[in-house]
């Protein structure tokens, strides 16, 4: 085949060759441009796909269940005979575990970030950065295992009334999972604060602590807040830790010692069962997913806006 072509091929010469070459290359360039554009635009279709899927199924869901009942009913029992579709218990479970996670991740993450960027000698940085990276890379099932089989028994030793499934233990472990996100993003924000601000404060006789807390942290505030928000959105969307260690009992309670169920864990619970597609039970996971998507979306947008702001101010 190749030799045949070669025999037929005559070298184009002079102007014709250049024109031919130019046309071919313009077509090729255009085709490549188009292909790459399609790759770029795919992400928009992904978002549209997510929104479409959630909206379609949620609309079907609300044809059978009233929105008011969905938002105000205090019981969530779609898999029982006596069906109630009140999302509040699931939202409550999600908020409870997320709150505990943030109580762990926020102070420790911020301390680590300030210490790493303002204080730590190179040696400490060299140890701690990889540790944080490893913590961030551990799969969430592994954290789930750790919460259920290590942290819960440990806490039960301290609080004997605690149930085997509870919100406290997965909350704490989730906090540890989120910690690297908060500390590394906060550190980026702190790093972006110009050195001149620090020097000005030192020149006025401030101590290192004062520079860190009265100058650097306020200056990096929007970036630090953005990292907290991102952490919150991670906590809301986290699935495996709570599915493994928090239980499967939707319950409207602020008590962190009893089994609860989060929105994500409910989706897992239904997915593991044999719920036939197209039924009301099947649609509940999309309604819950919609709620989940909206809440994380909102938090993410604010976080993104804040991060953009701190970049514009200093870079």
């Amino acid at each position: 085949m190749a030799t045949k072509n070669r025999q037929k091929w005559e070298p184009r010469t002079g102007e014709r060759a250049i024109i031919h070459h130019k046309r071919a290359s313009r077509i090729r360039e255009g085709a490549i441009h188009l292909a790459l554009f399609l790759c770029g635009i795919l992400s928009i279709f992904t978002t549209l796909g997510i929104v479409a899927v959630l909206v379609i199924e949620t609309v079907e869901f609300f044809k059978e269940v009233s929105i008011l009942g969905f938002l105000t009913d205090t019981q969530w029992t779609p898999l029982f005979v006596d069906k109630h579709f009140g999302i509040m218990p699931l939202v409550c479970g999600t908020l409870l575990t997320s709150l505990i996670a943030m109580l762990v991740a926020l102070p420790i993450g911020l301390l680590c970030a300030v210490y790493l960027s303002e204080y730590a000698p190179e040696r400490v940085r060299h140890v701690l950065k990889p540790v944080l990276e490893v913590l961030a890379g551990i799969p969430t099932v592994v954290y789930g295992y750790f919460a259920l089989l290590f942290v819960t028994p440990l806490l039960q030793g301290l609080i004997p009334s605690m149930s085997g499934f509870n919100a406290l233990s997965p909350g704490i472990v989730m906090g540890i999972m989120i910690l690297p996100i908060i500390s590394s993003l906060s550190e980026d924000a702190i790093f972006a604060v110009p050195q001149s601000l620090r020097e000005a404060a030192y020149a006025m006789g401030s101590t290192k602590l004062q520079v860190s807390f009265l100058v650097v942290i306020p200056a990096a505030f929007s970036g630090i807040t953005a990292s907290f928000l991102l952490g919150i959105s991670r906590a809301i969307g986290e699935t495996m830790i709570v599915a493994i260690a928090a239980g499967q009992q939707p319950r409207l309670t602020p008590n962190p010692l009893v089994p609860i169920e989060t929105m994500t864990a409910y989706i897992v619970q239904v997915s593991l069962g044999d719920t036939p597609t197209g039924t009301l039970e099947y649609r509940t996971i999309f309604a819950v997913g919609m709620m989940l998507f909206l809440s994380t979306f909102l938090v993410n947008i604010v976080s993104l806006w804040l991060r953009r702001r701190f970049r514009e101010v200093y870079l």
Binding site: T47, I50, V53, E238, T239, V268, I285, F293, T296, F297
Partner: peptide, 20 residues
């Protein structure tokens, strides 16, 4: 949009995959 997609919980992608 890409920055936002990076923050969408993975289980939501599961719901997309299930339907689509």
């Amino acid at each position: 949009n890409i920055a936002n997609l990076a923050g969408v919980p993975s289980i939501i992608y599961g719901l997309l995959g299930l339907e689509l």
